[in-house]
Write a protein that binds this DNA or RNA. Structure first.
Lengths: 332, 332
DNA sequence: AAGGGCAGTGTGAGCGGTCACACCGACATG
DNA sequence: CATGTCGGTGTGACCGCTCACACTGCCCTT
């Protein structure tokens, strides 16, 4: 592997001039630059990221901290970050943090505090992400893709407006004539600016009773269990599910209990995962622009890394997609 | 940030001794080691990955090349790699390559050829991954998570036995009494050791006619279109789908055409994505151990990186999971 | 008693870049 | 004509670590 010294020799200039060309400094004559570029090309030279990181003190890279790589919201956010990073020529790293347990959080923080991690984007949709965010030392350039209500403690934090989205979805159900809307929650919505809050907003403003929330995990089995409980209650006619996977479990539970969707019970999901339009019935859900969130986080992280001013995040607001899983209650 | 020199000073030894402790060389007295460890702890020292990579010539890291981060097979494989890497203390990078276009392949190869990329795992399920694998210079330590039939050209290549899995699934359908089985293929099965081949095997061995394959993309919309075409043909009673998402599109197409599953047509998927057990009907599919594949690839990549002998990959064979979407044809 | 091994430790150099600064010629200025 | 300024270039040192090698005792051999 040739180094800038080799390139310098081949081009008949000093290594510093090569460095200037690489960082396109204005202080180099056009013909000198051309000669260097030609030598670079001839030798197949590629600057070493490791050397740069060492010298600069920070890598030109972004590391994503997430608690999961398979779940749609996380994976799609990662996708957005990666796309933007690739376009900008930055490397991207990934670090999964499975729990909010102190030892694991500390290890994660140590790992991403390394200079070679570059800027950090913490996907703080859930407790483990939030824990990492809070434990991260100030000197680490980091931003959060967060629940809207996550305490930002001086950190840049970007979020989709889930509160409003949840309120819209709930209003849709109420407008259809449902007396109230039940809610099956995922681990990520504790926040005051989240789905839970929006659901309460909408219920409150129309004077509908606010039923107890059913908490479940990320796994569909727990959603199924929650669905069975809801199915046993004849008063339940509308359910807002924490995400589309949850909706799937609930839907199957309703089916197994002999309830038709949307005939007996209407359900709404969250996220608009790729398959939801093809279910039977096709799912009414809230489309979330996770990829856009990821891109915005990338740009914020780069600003943090380079010390530039934070750009205004360009986000597409969540929007309700009405399909077949919602309808008016029987006898309405 | 303290460096090994600071630690050395604090412990009253030379920096080289600190380095020895970090790499747990046997040539250091127990008490000396203890003193160094104490100093490390006191100062909160963490070795710099960038400096190590520069000095060593290769980073202690794994970079995953994939064409997608959201699709289940890719994401689950990534998850397996990340888990294993985290357990071993290696950083993980990710590089998406969207197409097999020469310029993009070259850029990808350049990026992962950098010393800071460490070992490389190419998820070569599709043409773009295969293209990267083939373009990768010999000196880059890389392994492939591949289609079984991918030409390995001296590269270590690990795969799940999709051929046998597809044959099993097809035999299941045939045993149910179907005259033949149709196949909707995804972009990843061109290989001679893949799903397509297994399907042909099973059809051939029982003398069933081999219908034309319907190719579609990764998107469910194209699967839906394929499903509509199949639904129009009254001879079609059994369909083997390239993966579960495809099965979802096909299932909806059948439904929209007034065909019942499994009453009129049986369908089988591939992958066993988390929701498939909760569909109506629950999907008969082939469970694939992508996470195990990822772990095996990680270990192979580390062996490649450190020059050790290749371990025997421990893989869980794909297995057919029979649920509700398959049954005997009408009048059987 | 002189030599040879060996465990344990220290020193120099180098990985491939970047920063700070010195330098040099050309032109404008007093 | 001496001086200042500035575009364009080169030199030294350094980032934090690991390598190769030299060195110091100490014990064992002959």
């Amino acid at each position: 592997m040739p180094s800038i010294r080799d390139v310098a020799a081949a081009a008949g200039v000093s290594y510093q001039t090569v460095s200037r060309v690489l960082n396109d400094s204005p202080k180099v004559r056009a013909e000198t630059r051309a000669a260097v570029l030609a030598a670079i090309d001839r030798l197949g030279f590629r600057p070493s990221r490791a050397a740069r990181a060492l010298s600069l003190g920070r890598a030109r890279a972004i590391t994503v901290v997430t608690s999961n790589t398979v779940l749609y919201g996380y994976a799609a956010t990662l996708q957005g970050i990666e796309e933007a990073a690739r376009a900008a020529g930055l490397a991207v790293g990934i670090r999964v943090v499975e729990s909010a347990e102190p030892a694991e959080v500390k290890q994660t923080v140590d790992d991403v505090s390394d200079a070679s991690a570059g800027g950090v984007v913490v996907i703080a949709f859930d407790p483990s992400g939030v824990a990492v965010l809070e434990a991260l030392p100030r000197h680490v350039p980091a931003v959060a893709a967060a629940e809207p209500a996550a305490p930002d403690r001086g950190r840049v934090s970007i979020a989709l407006d889930e509160r409003r989205a949840a309120a819209d979805a709930t209003r849709h159900l109420l407008a259809l004539g449902h007396r109230t809307v039940h809610h099956v929650a995922i681990p990520s919505e504790g926040g005051a600016g989240g789905r839970l809050a929006g659901w309460r907003d909408a219920l409150g403003e129309s004077g509908a009773p606010i039923p107890a929330v059913l908490d479940c995990g990320w796994d569909i089995a727990s959603a199924y269990a929650a669905g069975r409980r809801l199915a046993a209650d004849p008063d339940v006619t509308a359910i807002l599910c924490g995400n589309d996977d949850i909706a799937q479990g609930v839907r199957r539970a309703l089916y197994d209990a002999g309830k038709a969707v949307p005939g007996d019970v209407s359900i709404v999901g969250f996220d608009d995962i790729p398959g939801s339009a093809y279910w039977t019935p096709a799912l009414t859900t809230v489309r979330m622009d996770f990829a856009g969130l990821g891109r915005a986080c990338f740009h914020a992280a780069v600003a943090e890394l380079t010390g530039q001013e934070q750009p205004e995040p360009a986000l597409v607001a969540p929007s309700l997609v009405v399909r077949e899983s919602t309808g008016s209650p029987r006898g309405f």
